[in-house]
């Protein structure tokens, strides 16, 4: 039996002639903090909405917590918490009333549990104020709180740090860690803040134009020792030489260095190839990309058709 809490299989959504999500296959594993990355309009929110049954797929399938969302969505939704984009609440109700009301739709939560959750997100002191008096950050935290009620196994957070100040972002990051470490929840996180995702997530998926560019571990994506940085006397010629070998991926990233993905101990082969063509290699250093660099590289390659 698969340990995936969310699986999509060639998930597709078209609006007229525009393809928002194109045959996307993902798998979020139990106990993951799973980063879901993409630029604005890449199809992240549409994918999340399809995963939660808000939007009907044009084609493909979603299995959430083992349930086919086209057939039995409610069993899965009862065990899933979600915050999709900016959370919205009934403005003339208090934070506590909003939580109680929304939790009631999932089977209800005792007052103690509501209080604990408010405490967890740091809203206990303002729980009985009307939501209309809440700041943006408080609404974000209340959004996370409602996703944690009554007792989900899987939480989807779409841009939970959107609009938060650095302190709020740090608190949210800590909160998400606690969700996994203390509450043993699986978390799917969509965010623009790649630095945060890199610090939090075990696995990520990167999409662009509705298509999947990468899904896997963060460490694998950012290099993990397989990328080397070369200093060469004629970088442009070196790039042309390396491009002749289809098993190597080389880029310059606008610097004087050349970055080569040369897994499987092929660093010596790279060096020999360049030297054989008369190029002088003065430095070979193992390199680790940041998630942001990896993201930019992948999106750039995808758009160039590499």
């Amino acid at each position: 039996m698969s340990d995936a809490v969310l699986e999509t299989e060639r998930l597709t959504k078209r609006y007229g002639r525009r393809v928002a999500v194109d045959a996307l296959s993902l798998a979020v594993r139990r106990a993951d903090i799973y980063g879901f990355l993409g630029q604005n309009g890449a199809g992240k929110s549409t994918t999340i909405r399809m995963a939660l049954g808000l939007v009907r797929p044009t084609a493909g399938r979603v299995r959430l917590l083992g349930q086919d969302m086209a057939k039995r969505p409610h069993r899965a939704l009862a065990r899933t918490g979600a915050m999709v984009e900016a959370p919205a609440f009934y403005e003339n109700f208090t934070g506590r009333q909003n939580l109680t009301m929304l939790a009631a739709l999932s089977g209800g939560a005792p007052r103690r549990r509501v209080d604990e959750t408010l405490e967890l997100v740091g809203l206990a002191a303002r729980a009985d104020d009307a939501v209309r008096a809440y700041s943006h950050g408080m609404r974000q935290r209340l959004g996370i709180a409602q996703a944690l009620l009554p007792n989900p196994e899987f939480v989807i957070l779409d841009e939970p740090t959107d609009g938060l100040d650095p302190q709020g972002i740090r608190e949210t990051r800590e909160l998400i860690r606690r969700l996994r470490d203390e509450l043993k929840l699986t978390v799917m996180l969509s965010s623009h803040l790649l630095h945060e995702v890199e610090q939090l997530c075990d696995r990520v998926a990167i999409i662009d134009g509705g298509r999947l560019l990468y899904e896997g571990g963060v460490a694998e994506l950012t290099g993990g020792g397989e990328i080397v940085r070369l200093r060469v006397d004629r970088p442009d010629e070196a790039l042309r030489v390396l491009a002749d070998d289809p098993t190597l991926a080389a880029s310059r990233n606008g610097t004087q260095f050349i970055y080569v993905r040369a897994g499987g101990g092929r660093v010596a082969d790279v060096n020999a190839l360049l030297v054989a063509r008369g190029l002088r290699v003065s430095e070979i250093v193992p390199h680790r990309e940041t998630l942001e660099e990896a993201f930019t590289r992948l999106v750039g390659e995808a758009r160039r058709g590499v």
């Binding site: 939660l52 808000l54 939704l77 999709v84 959370p87 919205a88 009934y90 929304l102 739709l105």
Partner: peptide, 14 residues
Amino acid sequence: RAGTLRMIAVRPVA
């Protein structure tokens, strides 16, 4: 329009 519909619709409610 207010966004509260999606908050409800992601709950197990037909």
